[in-house]
Simulated assay, not measured.
Amino acid sequence: MIGYTTLGTNDLPRAAAFYDELFAVIGIQRIMDFGRGYAWGTGMDKPAFGVMRPFDGKPASVGNGVMIALAVDSQDKVRALHAKALALGGADEGAPGPRGEGFYAAYFRDLDGNKLNAFCMG
């Protein structure tokens, strides 16, 4: 159902470097450059994750209650993404661990304060 998501940034080069390194941990690379932003994914026919400067020219801001969840296939990848995000300057929002039956997750914020979650099932 989801085609793509986007998060706003006030520093596109910094955000791009953060996500280039973060997504390299799980083998994801940039698939699109659209001038005021970039997208990462595994192909143009698959869901993508984008970061961009807001279209209206106003500063990007964090949405209260907004979070993007990144599905991975192992607890090791959840831990690796969380650790990489923190190493790149992101903020911890919840250490890796079980969050209910069959759900393993970790929470962090990117350099602009956007909240993300890495999770796996099983």
Rank of each mutant, 00 (worst) to 15 (best):
A87M: 05
Q75A: 05
A87P: 04
G102F: 11
E93P: 03
M52F: 07
W40Y: 01
G90I: 00
G50K: 06
A69N: 11
A83H: 09
G8L: 04
G94A: 01
S74W: 02
Y19T: 08
F34Q: 08
H82P: 06
G41M: 06
G35A: 12
F18C: 03
F103V: 04
V62E: 01
N64S: 12
L88I: 08
G122T: 11
G27R: 13
G113T: 09
D56G: 05
L70E: 02
A105N: 00
Y19F: 11
G97M: 12
L22G: 00
A105Q: 02
D11F: 13
A118K: 07
S61P: 04
G65D: 04
A105V: 01
A48I: 06
R79Y: 06
Y107N: 08
K115M: 12
K77S: 02
P59T: 08
F49W: 10
A60G: 11
A106W: 01
A87Y: 03
F108A: 00
G57P: 12
L22S: 02
F34A: 07
R36H: 13
A17W: 07
I2M: 15
G57M: 10
P98Y: 09
D45F: 07
K84E: 14
N10L: 05
T9G: 02
A91M: 11
K115A: 15
N114C: 11
G65W: 04
M32W: 10
N10R: 03
D112L: 08
K58T: 14
F55Q: 14
T5V: 15
G41D: 01
V51D: 03
F18A: 04
V66K: 12
A80Q: 12
A105D: 03
G35I: 11
D33M: 08
A24E: 12
M1C: 11
P13V: 03
A118F: 03
G94K: 05
Y38P: 03
F49N: 01
F55G: 07
F23E: 05
A105R: 00
R99W: 09
A105H: 02
E21R: 13
Q75L: 01
T6H: 13
D11Q: 06
A69V: 02
A83L: 06
A48V: 08
E101T: 13
P13F: 04
F18M: 04
V66R: 14
D73M: 06
N117H: 12
T5A: 15
N64D: 10
G43M: 02
H82T: 02
M121K: 11
F119R: 09
L81N: 02
R53C: 11
A118D: 01
T5E: 10
T42M: 14
Y4H: 15
E21G: 08
H82Q: 04
G100A: 07
E21N: 10
F103P: 10
F34P: 00
